[in-house]
Every structure is written in structure tokens, then in C-alpha cells.
Nucleic acid binder design. Structure first.
Lengths: 211, 211
DNA sequence: TGACACATACCAACCGTATGGTATGTTTCC
DNA sequence: GGAAACATACCATACGGTTGGTATGTGTCA
């Protein structure tokens, strides 16, 4: 998606600016409460431009979820938690990294696709599926390390790598909910501490990692 | 809140029916996408009745969150997970109970206040706070058992009872998000299995409980 | 090489309707 | 009979979406 235009628009094109606007506004207000006019105002474009790039508001929602999947993929690929040589260390570093980036305003660190999926899971299967691909696709990037750690250490619990990978996303998403309800990011961070402890226990590692 | 009407209306009064309608519709469509007309139609009342009982739509949101807190409190107080004599067994039975009631349609078992908090945490502090009270109030009902279990067994980990109580809610709320994104309740259930395993590990209990 | 056909990106103004909310009744109950 | 509990009819506007247009780039063929 978002294939680059042949002719080079001298500044960031309207489509990208609309997707960035959607990312920011929807995280704060939700999808339904975000109006097309909101998006156009923040993106600095007119409605004509909006409906040139997107068939309707729902199509923007799908594109925003895909845009989110792309940008977060790049972000996490470039993140430092891949550095450790031991796979378990990488998994724990991932959790620590997720905790570390929870700071500042809620709308700056919460998850666009988690927010949208919550809202539109009944009303828009297309947006929901795009959100699902983003979440489960990201979870899948953890599976290899979890499975490698499991084999390395001969762990034979009654759980699977893919299930644990999804569970990390459960804790992250749930943490965002508590943080919003309590209006305090600390609620999201403390659950990541529990998640880290859980993983260390699963692998019989007792020492605390970096907080 | 929601003090019973003085004169007893032979059938459920309009206010209650509107709150029940809100509970059902908002869980499916979200708060912003739920219109006043939607609520009136499902409740079988007119807009006059709506604005007689609620100053505006936001006031209904607050009342719906409070209504949710009351009804779920009663529901969980009457639930069978309080039966075991050992406090840890009660905590594990709670988790098993939360897993057991995840069945049927998503909108039937997901959490109203988690959904609303997600949407309105910026736009309506009043609704957000009412949602927060419901979630954290419910979490608090678990603290005594967790703390008792901790003392009984002389557990001295670097975690607190209130933090673990909140973490259970994080996993439950996050599970709902994954279930919605993946359109399958199984994603919520599998994370509750991880949560149960985590708690058992914290208390060095290895045997599986009832699934 | 230039000019013509066509496509893309974007804008300004407009439209029908759905929406939250109001004004004004009417019924019901103590 | 008076107040609370509803209903009916209506309003202003915000909303998603449309229409018609301009400016600019791009491929093509004589």
C-alpha cells in the first residue's frame, strides 16, 4: 500500500499527511468521533483531497491500520532489543523496551489498531481485519525468539510460543486500557513488570533484568 | 446512583431500559457511534423520555458506567468463585470463572467500561473517571484474597497485592482487545490460562486447576 | 521536439440527512 | 392538583459525501 507517486510532490503528499493525522487524532478521540473535517484540518488539506485519496471514511480507517502496521514494523525492526545474542534475553529486552517507550501523553504511546479494533469490530469487519493483521503480525515477530529460547533451555511447559507471543500483546493492550481508565501510564508499565516476571519464571530465570 | 423510583412503575422504567440499551449497544458499536435515537429505539422510549432522565448524552455515559459497576458488583458477589476456603484457591477460581464466562457473542461478554474508557479518555473525563472507578473498584475486590494468600504462604516477591489485582484486569481487558481484533473469544481465554499459570508460579503451586 | 490526450493531485462550494437537543404537550400517580 | 414520567413535533447544525473545477505532470506519436 501507499506506493510512492511517480511524480514527486515537493512536500509530503496529502495522503500521507491524512494518515498521520488519523494516527494522532484517532488515538486521542477514537475512530467514530474523528470527523473527516478534523482530519482535513490537521492534515492541511481539503475534503476534495480526502475523497480523492480515500473512497470513504472506512477506507481511510483500513489505510490507517495498514500505515500503522508498516511504520511500527520499521520502528520495531530498528529497535535495540534485537541486540542480545541469547533469544530469551531478546524477548525480555522486548518487554523492557515496550515498557520504556510508555511515557508522555497517552495518545502518543497507545496503539492505534487496538483502539480501532475495539470500536469497529462489529461495524466494520474490514478495518477490524486490518487491525488484526497489525496486532497478530507484530506478535508473530516474537515467536522465533520465544521458540528458540524454549528449545535452548529445554522448557516443556504446556504452552506454545505463539500463544505466549500473543499474550505479550494482550498485556500491552490491556495495560493501555488501564492507563486510560486511570489516566496514568504507570498502570501500563506495572503490568509489563508482571509480564517480564512471568516470562522469567517460565524459563526459570530469577535475576531481575534492567528496569 | 440510579436510586429506585419512588412510585413503582410496573415494568422496568425508561431510565433502566435506556441504561440496559446503552450497555448492549455501546459494547457492540462503541459510545460515539451509538446515537440517542439508537438508544431510544432499543429501549422503546422517545427522545423526550431520554432527555427527561439524562441531561445529555455524556450524562448517560456516566450513568451507564455507574450502572455497569453496580450490576457487575452484584454479579461477581454472587459468583461461585468465593466458595473455596483457601484464599489462593479463590483467586485462581476467579480467573477460571472469568475464563468460563467468555462465550457466545463478543458484545455479550466484553466490558462496557473498558470499551468506553478507551474511547472517551480524552474527550470526556467524567465518563472516563466513572469507568476507572468501575475497573479499579472491581480489581480491589481481589486484593484481600491475594494478600491473604501471600501471607498464608509467606511469599516475598517484589510485587504487591494491589498491583497483581490490577494485572488481572489488564489481562482481561487486553484479552478482549485481541478477541475483537481476531474475532475469536479464544484469544481472550488463552491469555487467562497464562494469567492462571503466572499466579500459580508466583505462589509456587504447580498443579493445574480446573479448566 | 512539440503538441495533444490523458491522468493525477488537489481545491472550493455545495447538498441531504442524521444527530444532539428543545419546546410543548399529555398521561399517570400520590 | 401538582409534580414527575413520559410522548410529539420540531430545530440548528455538524456530518459524510458530491460536484465541478484547476494546475501540473506524463506518455505518445507525427
Amino acid at each position: 500500500m501507499s506506493r510512492p507517486t511517480k511524480q514527486t510532490p515537493e512536500r509530503g503528499d496529502a495522503r500521507t499527511r491524512l494518515l498521520e493525522a488519523a494516527r494522532n487524532i484517532v488515538r486521542a478521540k477514537g475512530f467514530a468521533a474523528t470527523t473527516v473535517d478534523d482530519l482535513c484540518r490537521v492534515a492541511g488539506v481539503t475534503k476534495g483531497a480526502f475523497f480523492h485519496h480515500f473512497e470513504n471514511k472506512e477506507a481511510l480507517g483500513v489505510a490507517a491500520a495498514e500505515f500503522w502496521a508498516e511504520t511500527t514494523s520499521s520502528f520495531f525492526e530498528a529497535a535495540p532489543y534485537h541486540v542480545p545474542t541469547d533469544p530469551l534475553d531478546r524477548v525480555l529486552a522486548y518487554v523492557a523496551f515496550r515498557k520504556a517507550i510508555i511515557e508522555g501523553e497517552l495518545a502518543e504511546f497507545t496503539c492505534l489498531v487496538g483502539t480501532m479494533a475495539q470500536e469497529v469490530h462489529v461495524t466494520s469487519p474490514e478495518i477490524r481485519d486490518a487491525c488484526g493483521q497489525s496486532i497478530f503480525g507484530h506478535a508473530a515477530t516474537l515467536e522465533a525468539d520465544i521458540e528458540a529460547a524454549r528449545r535452548d533451555r529445554g522448557i516443556t511447559g504446556d504452552w506454545t510460543a505463539d500463544s505466549l507471543a500473543r499474550h505479550t500483546q494482550t498485556v500491552i493492550q490491556g495495560g493501555f486500557i488501564l492507563a486510560k481508565a486511570g489516566n496514568d501510564p504507570a498502570f501500563a508499565r506495572e503490568s509489563l513488570d508482571h509480564l517480564s516476571r512471568y516470562i522469567r519464571q517460565l524459563f526459570s530465570v530469577t535475576q531481575e533484568g534492567a528496569t
